[in-house]
């Protein structure tokens, strides 16, 4: 049993606050991704959990032990480093075996585990080589295999698939997921790649500027962003933000009028996913002025303006829209996000 509790963790480098009051709980066997732009503190958080960095404040609990101040080796976890950190003076085999050797595993077990991990990551062919004879992607897979070989209770991974080509990445992703699920490994996974996070995770924590903006299941994060940042960060194209006037707690979208819950000012920001629209006649719907129309095969991507503000929407591939044409859009009322323009936070649904 190994859950991870990160309780109000803060970290400063000199006067720079890399982490500000971060709290996150990862249940036993759960897979949680940390997602966020470069420099938001993902690696720092992972390193604090691993014991490689000392937190400025807060508490880390792994299983039923508070591990603050404990050496990395005593925390019972494995880690994949962002820059691999495979040992250049050991063969791939010895690299993968390293953790097991430290546990004083007998040779039979070492061999079994190494071969299993190597097979999973398709590096059997290189087991006798030294890492300087491997490509970046191969080294990265050695790093992942080294972590999997010890069959850890808790696994920390820092962008473990970032250097693989698209096809291999997709394959590794599915295999990783099934292996970790089967073993019931508690996993904290850092990635830049949203689709990777969406596909792998039980829950996603979106980080921004040293804070966790939102934690939730992938679908919730995508459809119900808690802040403007999350909506803009997730999705491709990102969520559209359209500022609209509010009159007596109601806002007009085309011919329809929506009432807003909670106290609102004179303006509100509508968060709209590009695919949550339906084409209707311009008189009925909200006016969308098309600037560029791009048939993508699976869908039609339109770039233009709504209420003079830039927006991108997605229509079925069968639709035909010319540049310059103004069309009407009917919005899916259940899937709209209303965001306070002052705080950037979403209103309660």
């Amino acid at each position: 049993m190994a859950s991870i509790t990160i309780d109000s963790v803060a970290k400063s480098f000199g006067s720079f606050k890399a982490l500000k009051d971060v709290s996150l709980t990862i249940a036993d066997g759960e897979f949680v991704s940390l997602l966020g732009p470069s420099g938001c503190g993902k690696t720092t958080l992972l390193r604090i959990v691993a014991g490689l960095e000392t937190e400025t404040g807060g508490r880390i609990v792994i299983g039923d032990r508070t591990v603050n101040g404990l050496a990395p080796k005593d925390r019972g976890l494995a880690m994949v480093f962002q820059n691999y950190a495979v040992f250049p003076h050991m063969t791939v085999y010895e690299n993968v075996a390293f953790g097991l050797r430290m546990q004083k595993a007998d040779d039979a077990r070492v061999k079994r585990q190494v071969e299993k991990a190597a097979g999973l990551l398709h590096i059997e062919a290189y087991l006798d080589r030294y890492p300087n004879k491997l490509s970046g992607g191969q080294r990265q897979r050695v790093a992942v295999a080294r972590a999997l070989a010890v069959e850890p209770q808790v696994l920390l991974m820092d962008e473990p698939l970032s250097n693989l080509d698209a096809l291999l990445r997709l394959q590794m992703r599915t295999e990783l997921k099934s292996v970790l699920q089967e073993a019931g490994t508690t996993t904290l996974y850092v990635t830049h790649d949203q689709t990777e996070a969406m596909g792998l995770s039980d829950r996603i924590a979106v980080m921004h500027d040293g804070r966790i903006e939102q934690v939730g299941e992938p679908v919730d994060i995508y459809s119900r962003p808690a802040t403007r940042f999350v909506g803009g960060f997730m999705g491709n194209p990102p969520m559209n933000f359209i500022e609209l006037p509010v009159e007596a707690g109601r806002v007009n979208i085309g011919a329809e009028s929506h009432s807003l819950s909670g106290p609102v000012g004179s303006k509100i920001v509508l968060g709209l996913r590009g695919e949550d629209v339906e084409r209707v006649s311009p008189e009925v719907g909200m006016a969308f002025k098309t600037a560029v129309s791009e048939p993508m095969g699976s869908h039609l991507l339109l770039t233009g303006t709504i209420a003079d503000q830039p927006a991108r929407v997605i229509l079925p591939p069968t639709e035909k829209v010319r540049a310059g044409e103004t069309i009407g859009l009917k919005l899916d009322a259940d899937r709209l996000t209303w965001i306070s323009p002052e705080t950037g936070k979403a209103l309660a649904a």
Partner: peptide
């Protein structure tokens, strides 16, 4: 000698001295 190599050794069960002898010294 990259620091991460030493850190990797710590994470995978080495003490500081152990990591120094197993990873830093050979390199």
């Amino acid at each position: 000698v990259p620091r991460e190599l030493e850190e990797a050794a710590w994470v995978f069960g080495c003490s500081r001295i152990g990591a120094f002898l197993k990873v830093v010294v050979p390199l």
